[in-house]
Amino acid sequence: MRRSRTRSAVAAVAAGLLAVSLASCGSNGGEQDGNAFTIGLLLPSQQITRYENSDRPMIEKRVKELCPGCTVDHANAGDDVASQQRQMHSMITRGVGALILDAVDAKALRSSVQAAHKAGIPVIAYDRLAEGPISGYASFNGGQVGRLQARALLDAMRAKGDGRQIVMMNGDPSSPNAAWFKKGAMSVLKDKVRIGKSYDVIEYRPDNAYANMQAAITALGPHRIGGVLAVNDTVASGAISALKSARIRPVPPVTGQDADLDAVQRIVSGDQYMTVYKPFKAEAHAVAAMAVALGRGHSLRSIAHTTVDNTTTENIPASLLTPVAVTVGSIRKTLVKDGVYTIGEICTPKLRPACDKAGLTR
């Protein structure tokens, strides 16, 4: 994927969303004249908990704010390509006004995207850039995600005086973001650390990550792994379980992504070093605004401030937001400050001593 004409900033996105919101307020009467429609929301996975716990409710709420007469028709593919293809074609048949697609497999969904385009239904790629004639794209800068993970891992290893090799636990190769994350990470890691083993974790499943990590421990030895670059928190959980099962103490630094609650708790307890927080509210608001605008036949000029290319389409209007690295020392000023979690949600009775030590309960 190639990025061009970049002038994306959170402030600019916020301004664009406000403009769309104001425009929608002025068109409420028009909605009763046929400007209300259904938006299809196709999510890829239940393994990655953020989709159902965060993304879905925020998208649905924002669509209602921007278009009170609109409805959201939601489906989750459960990591099954065939299921997502059926779900998408069902929505096309029902004649939705716009589709938000977070593709299980970007290449496999190309024909479905083409079918929607042929039916006059705009498709907005969400979080992962699908192939085909995509009309808009809302996500985070995947290269920056990888760079944040790699820099944090190197910092943690240096702090421990540990310059040994690492294990890379990459994403599912069917996801276009997996290569984006890895490319960003490698731009930092190159020539700075030895990569002992590298795995693509199929479907981002924790049991697959567990098996991969077990294989790495067997191949490299339990005391020759200085860190683990895990692509997200689900993969991190499997890797950490394998390290603990091998009785490796202390657990070497492990990265993550998505700021899942259990990952934040692992960071507090010391089992996971960091995660990447992607302010999902801004991403959800951006894609909701795109869907409402395109469903009404409007331009994305006020929402998308850069363009991207997929393998079939150039200059796709895009909103690429900025991710944030989170370690134990920055949980309060990021996740708690933004209202993602409360101290009470993070600091269970079992974690209270660790929270006290981290300064979260003071």
Rank of each mutant, 00 (worst) to 15 (best):
D207R: 07
V145F: 07
D162W: 11
D172P: 07
V201I: 15
Q144I: 12
K197C: 09
K190S: 12
K183W: 03
P133M: 12
A179P: 01
N212H: 08
Y199D: 13
G136E: 02
I202Y: 11
A178Q: 02
M186L: 15
K160W: 04
M168P: 02
E131Y: 14
F181Q: 00
K192C: 09
N141K: 07
G132F: 11
A179S: 13
D155A: 15
R194L: 08
G161N: 10
S198H: 10
G196P: 06
K197G: 02
G184F: 00
M169L: 15
L148Q: 01
K160L: 15
M186V: 10
R147N: 03
G171H: 01
S135Y: 05
W180G: 00
I166V: 15
G171V: 00
L153W: 07
I166G: 01
E131V: 08
D200C: 07
M157C: 09
N212T: 03
R151M: 14
K197W: 01
R128G: 04
A138Y: 01
I166N: 03
I134G: 06
P133Y: 12
I134P: 08
Y199I: 09
R164A: 10
G146W: 03
I166M: 13
A150S: 12
K192I: 09
R164Q: 14
L153G: 07
L129C: 08
K197P: 03
N170A: 15
D207Q: 12
G161L: 10
N208L: 05
A179W: 02
N208M: 05
E131W: 11
A178H: 01
K192A: 14
M168I: 15
D172R: 05
R158C: 02
G132H: 12
N170D: 13
A138H: 01
A152R: 13
A178P: 01
L154K: 10
E203M: 10
A130Y: 11
E131F: 14
E203S: 14
A179C: 03
K183M: 09
Q149W: 03
S175V: 09
F140D: 00
A185C: 05
